[in-house]
Design a protein around this nucleic acid. Structure first.
Lengths: 223, 223
DNA sequence: CGCGAATCTCAGAGGAACCTCAGAGCGCCC
DNA sequence: GGGCGCTCTGAGGTTCCTCTGAGATTCGCG
């Protein structure tokens, strides 16, 4: 039902030997791997490509690993990040997590654990994958269109895409108009816009994609 | 979102000393803490209350920690879970993560790291829902619907939801019409409304959800 | 069993919430 | 600079929720 999951991975690692080892390891597990050799290049990749998950080494030339995480988060990149480090002190871990990394693995690490943590990251972070489940169909977030099912692909506008993305990423949650306005419509006062875009999505995708919870707001149609 | 973030926390820990220590620690950080002493009680709390995050010890009597995680996930509970363990082997970690836990901390742990991991969990997991036990099914208060059992989800209106919420939160108590009117129906004089909404709930959920205590009022059907 | 009181059932009025959609304003691309 | 698509507004029509009230049914007690 969910189409295949996106398995693209960005590895930022300066040590050539370790990079090669990890790349082979990840590829063997079915990931599509891009390797960056320093923070600068990692930043560039992360900002221009879309990845399901990133693995970043702390000890990088040019830009330090934790600093890279912070910069990415500051730019709005929400892709889950796993940080590798040789240092295992508590302050290091705290710093990494508070910078916005999702998880932390200390070198030398067990390969199985690293892979398990990656699986865990991917499983709970569907919202940054490029494909979101819509039941019969799915939303391709980067291409801004809805595919699958029987009919032809359906193109979405920017707003429509953002709105549907939010719903699809949280299929059981009820969103109030206020929440939607703040998350999707940056302008604080556009009272009717939410309703209008729900209407647009329904017109394009069918009445049931989004359900009204009278007096509260909206939520995803499936589930 | 509406105001402050939810900071409710469920701690499942059998060691009394450690439980007390952690409770004080979490409370000091601004969390509202419920403590369960074994897996059974933890399961019950987790299914009937809403928490922003859960901290579960692996070595529990009755139900093992990882097993508890698995059961919760199987029942659709998506609250983020952090597992504590004395064992630090790789297989243990892999097992915990694959069971559906979000994170893993090995005892003895640094307090700062534990708190940082909790912050990280909370930051990336904003949505969870309030659940009340109805026996076979449960009421999702925030989504205003009844789920579980065999059939399809049943949507409730605002009033229906409020009324059922009151009953479900106090399964043994008998409510008079007056009490119900005061708690659920803002207008002090809407004499027949209570009866009507009891009727609506029965029509949607089955005759037995709410029982009549002739001459007194109503109470929950189960228990 | 019979009667009054309590409860159940349900159609419908009133009002709030919501849906629909034409069109104005804006930016972008040719 | 003109056309096109996207975004948001606002007004009118529609749906849904809430509560009322009246007739049917059940309960409890003598």
């Amino acid at each position: 039902m969910t189409g295949d999951q996106d398995r693209s991975l960005l590895l930022v690692e300066d040590d050539a030997k370790l990079a090669a080892l990890l790349e082979r390891l990840f590829t063997g597990e079915g990931y599509t791997v891009d390797v960056a050799r320093d923070g600068q290049s990692g930043l560039h990749h992360a900002l221009t490509q879309r990845y399901a998950v990133m693995v970043i080494d702390r000890g990088l030339p040019a830009i330090e690993g934790v600093d890279l995480v912070r910069r990415l988060r500051a730019r709005g990149v929400s892709t889950p990040i796993l940080v590798l480090t040789a240092r295992g002190t508590t302050e290091d871990r705290v710093e990494g997590l508070d910078a916005g990394a999702e998880d932390y693995v200390v070198k030398p690490f067990e390969i199985d654990e690293l892979l398990a943590r990656l699986r865990a990251l991917l499983r709970r972070h569907t919202d940054s994958s490029t494909r979101l489940d819509l039941g019969e169909r799915y939303l391709d977030v980067t291409a801004r269109r809805v595919l699958g099912g029987t009919g032809a692909p359906i193109e979405l506008s920017g707003r429509e895409n953002e709105l549907l993305q939010l719903f699809a990423a949280h299929p059981t949650q009820v969103f109030t108009r206020d929440e939607l306005r703040r998350q999707v419509f940056q302008d604080a006062d556009s009272p009717g816009a939410v309703d209008t875009y729900v209407y647009y999505l329904r017109r394009k995708l069918g009445r049931d994609v989004i359900r009204t919870v009278h007096g509260l707001g909206y939520r995803m149609g499936s589930a």
